[in-house]
Structures are given as structure tokens and as C-alpha cells.
Amino acid sequence: MRKGNRRMEQHRRDIAVYDLGTTSYGEVHELQKRLQEQRREGGGQDTLLLTEHRPVFTLGRSHPTPNLRASAETIRQYGIEIVQTERGGDITYHGPGQLVAYGIIDLKAWELGVVDYAHALEDVVIGVLADWGLRGERNEAGRGVWVDGRKIASLGLNVRRWITMHGIALNIDPDMSHWDLINACGMPDVEITSMATEVGRQVAFEEVQASFVFHFGRVLEAHPQKAAVPGRDAGRG
């Protein structure tokens, strides 16, 4: 990033990366809130949480009424949760096969504007897609990353006292039928796609995750360091 190039070297952007594995939305949401609060109070550290959620529809703060295309009964049959969040935007879906990256970052310390950061997250995904030969781009229809007019990654942020939470979700190979149940992002005609759909073959989740961290470091000129999840990764090195 241009701004990053001007950044003084002494402001090192260290960031701890936690690979949380498969999680329910609520537990990671709670963790994000605590990390953000701790960071706001001047403690903690910049953190990138990587996970794939069990199926859930999340709603933005200003859109408490789910923008659904199917009945609640149908959604219940699918076993999908509905959760209200404090991010901007309308309804979106998270589920297995989708890489979700949440950054809890002090933008002031990183000398980044909010939009700089949003663009950077999109650039990270664009870099990931390029590794698989896909051309990702922005679209005036909305934030996130698009491939040939189809949305492949969704972005949603919450910022308080310069500390971010929420982030970006990249569809690697999710159950696409779940998207049919909602008007994604509040837009009835948006077409959702995934990396597997676009490249026409299976895409390994772990490879995409590693690529994401690599490009996160590249785009944001940060130093991502994998951190062990206490009680789970201990002893694995």
C-alpha cells in the first residue's frame, strides 16, 4: 500500500494469528468483543483470527429483520443459526468451506484509515484469488471482492476508538445452497460464487488460509506470527 510505504520502520506491525479451526459464530464473536475491548483499553495485541464457522446467518446492526428468501421452518431444517451483530451491512452467511478472517487491529498505531484497511482486506483476497488464477476485483455494487460480477468475498467492519473487529469472509467451497435462503447483503439479485466454482475443482482450505496470511503480511506490511491456541495447540510446536 502506498501509505504503508511511507510508514516509518520503527512502527512494526506485529500481529498474532490464531487458527481457531471450526467454530460456532457466537464463541468467536464473544472473543472478538473481548479482544477489542482489551485493545481499546490500551492492552492486548493486534490479532488476526482465522476460522470457518458452523452455518450461521448474521445480521448487521441496522438490519435486525432477516432478509430471508425462505421460511424460518426451512432454515430450521437446515440447522442454521441467526445472530445479530454490531457490524455494518445487511444479512450474510457463514459456514463450513468459507474462510473468515477477523482482525482486531489498532488502526491508529498502524497509521491506517478505516477505508485504507477495508481496501487492504479486499487486496489481500484479490492476492489470494490470483494465486489460483482468478481475477478478483472491486465492484460498485458493494464492498467485498467480486469475480466477473459475482461476489466471492464479503466484508464487514466495526470500529471503535480506532480498534477494528469483524473482517472479511472468502468463499472457498461452501454449501452454496445456503445462500439461496437469503438475499445476500440485502441485494436480491447478487450472485454469490466460490473459489471451487470458479476454478472448477476442489480448493484446499488450508492452502487458502496460508495464502491469506501471506498476502495479509504483504499487503499490510505486517509481520503475522502464528500463535498457539491455549489448551489446544500446546505441545504441537
Binding site: 492476492g127 488464477g133 481475477r135 492452502e207 501471506f214 503480511g217
Partner: peptide, 29 residues
């Protein structure tokens, strides 16, 4: 946004981009 495919430095290599580098560790709380 027009990105030239980036070399997959991480792919298959023993050390990934996020793996700790000796002497370059982050202090965690």
C-alpha cells in the same frame, strides 16, 4: 486490483509466512 499472480512462496514450503522466525517472535499476553 489487476494483480499479477503472486508466487506461491508458502505452498509446500516447510516454512510458511506466519510461522515463527527465531529471534523474531511476538510477545503474547
Amino acid at each position: 486490483a489487476v494483480v499479477v499472480p503472486f508466487p506461491k512462496k508458502f505452498s509446500g514450503a516447510p516454512g510458511r509466512a506466519w510461522d515463527p522466525v527465531p529471534g523474531d517472535a511476538v510477545e503474547f499476553d
